[in-house]
Design a protein around this nucleic acid. Sequence first.
DNA 1: TCCTACTTGACGAACGTTCGTCAGTTATCG
DNA 2: CGATAACTGACGAACGTTCGTCAAGTAGGA
Lengths: 193, 193
Amino acid sequence: MLLKSDEIKAAAVKYFTIYGYEGASLAQIGEEVGMKKQSIYAHFKGKDDLFLHVLQEAKEEYLYSKIKYFRDIDAQHPEKDLYGFLTMMIDLFQKNEQLKFWLRVSFFPPVHLTKVIDKEVDDVETQVRVVLEEKFQGWIDHKKVVDDSAKRLTLAFLGVVDSILVELVYGNDEKTLKEKLDASWRVFWRGIQ
Amino acid sequence: MLLKSDEIKAAAVKYFTIYGYEGASLAQIGEEVGMKKQSIYAHFKGKDDLFLHVLQEAKEEYLYSKIKYFRDIDAQHPEKDLYGFLTMMIDLFQKNEQLKFWLRVSFFPPVHLTKVIDKEVDDVETQVRVVLEEKFQGWIDHKKVVDDSAKRLTLAFLGVVDSILVELVYGNDEKTLKEKLDASWRVFWRGIQ
DNA sequence: TCCTACTTGACGAACGTTCGTCAGTTATCG
DNA sequence: CGATAACTGACGAACGTTCGTCAAGTAGGA
């Protein structure tokens, strides 16, 4: 059994993701967990407070799921590991509500919370880039990929990741998604060899 | 001097882009053009009607600016023309409010208008893909790029475009943008040769 | 064990505000 | 005169938020 506050957060993630901050109402969220909107105030100070709690959890989920993947891999199989990362991202985003929330919010944050959100997003992106760049440096040193700057290869790969995220946001069918992944990946991989 | 209805549409684009459909109010838009929100009803049937008019114009702008570019180029210089397309996209998005609007709306449409919007977005994407695919076929025939399927190369390039759009949405500084463009482009170009 | 004191979570009612919308009126101009 | 476009005024509905209250559960001391 979940804590009531966790139930509320789960419902909030859902509605914030679908309708956005302004489009989601506390009444809606309350109804989802079987309570009136006033009762939410027993658990959170208000809409902003609820949103920021959800944001924090989504950030951790996003950061953890991205960084964890690269923690335990060696410097021997960039092709398998990079491609595996892309498919993992696709799987995660289709399953995990928090990642969809993070994506929407980082793209189009509610204006009065832009400052906070941009800071968090920047923090996450930086951490991911650092971890990934170390990996690419390893692959370059082991001559597994082309002898280019690790920074450039990292940015290029993150570009591929972004293009996949866009496809996920558009919510196209599985087939289109796979084609897009296949196309981007093959050209990318040929480009870094 | 603009028509008043065009002024309203221009203000609407601005606020819809910044605050989203739910976050933008007619009062705000009216104030921008120096009239009361009720007066907007002399020009549009309501908020949805205004939004859909704006959507239609943005679609045409988006479609035209993308397709026009490829109309008048030959099959001889893919490197110059493809890279030129990317820099043009960057320029346009930084100047043109309607393209930012289109981007936001196509990513996260207001739920009750999802049907209409998705249809328009799909229409545009298909048209762009067709035009681009013809170009790639020409380059393949002239042996200017790798002998792969035109469809795959098209999707891969559109992936690069998407990754640039993401960067534009994030609104990072000029330097980061150029680095990202440089990285994605170099790897892509190496990958299709 | 029983009474009390305090906490927790949810409630109805109401607050002030804003929302989109409609009706009726006034002013401008060909 | 008729048409157009702006205005004022008012509408119900929904918004986030605050208030006082009430039932249920917990803790502690006599």
